[in-house]
Amino acid sequence: MFKMRWWRPPLSLAGLIALSAWQSRGLLGGAILGVVAGLSARFFATASLGQDARVMIDLLLAITTIGSLAIGWLIATNLAAAEQERGAGLLLASKPLTAGQYAVGRWLGIVVGSALIYIISALVGCLIASLGQQMPLAELSLSWLTSGGELLVLAALANLLACWTTSSLASFLTLALWFIGHSIDVLVMSSGWQFLGYILPNLNRFNLHETYVTATGLPGTFYVLTGVYALSWSVVLVVLASAALKKRTW
């Protein structure tokens, strides 16, 4: 007799979504994005923006983060939302999965699918950009890690939206909320509504590229707090997705 393990069904669901992203030429898209980002970074680093390798890396990370997260969401939210459109959800939900297992599995699938594309694009981009240039790898890795926090929150957001909307609308709304998330500080300052900072995820917290260019580094506790912030928002959004799935009519 097999042992029932809570984590096995969500991990299997995440595997299905990530595998599908892998086999849907998502990685090829990531690699192409990396080539574009790497070449752009090289061009701008030697053009009017200056010869500073840090400017080049800042630009490179910004391009790969935005681009790969966008590709990742488009593929992964398409897969997650298409469960309902194509009926795959019916096949999967009829297995003895709780709404919580379903929400966690889908979120992990989107995270892994997007992360694969992000890692490939960043690796290819950095490789091209670093040829003959100075690459401070330790700081670069930290920037990657903090972008990972952004990926967790955005995947949770896409997962929640995919409970109601079509795949394309879920991707579009996630992108819209991503822009809002990066504008929270400006919104709070211009409107004076402090509560906006509490009810919407502040994605600017993950935008360390600029900090990295202008400063010499950040304390380790900042990275820990950023990770906790990302996880807290992700948990809230996954719990909401679980509640939405409980009420879903198949």
């Binding site: 029932m4 393990r5 096995r8 069904p9 299997s12 299905l16 096949l91 999967l92 297995k95 003895p96």
Partner: peptide, 10 residues
């Protein structure tokens, strides 16, 4: 194989 995991099969 992966839907077997949803059934909690190892």
């Amino acid at each position: 194989v992966l839907t077997g995991g949803l059934l909690n099969l190892n």
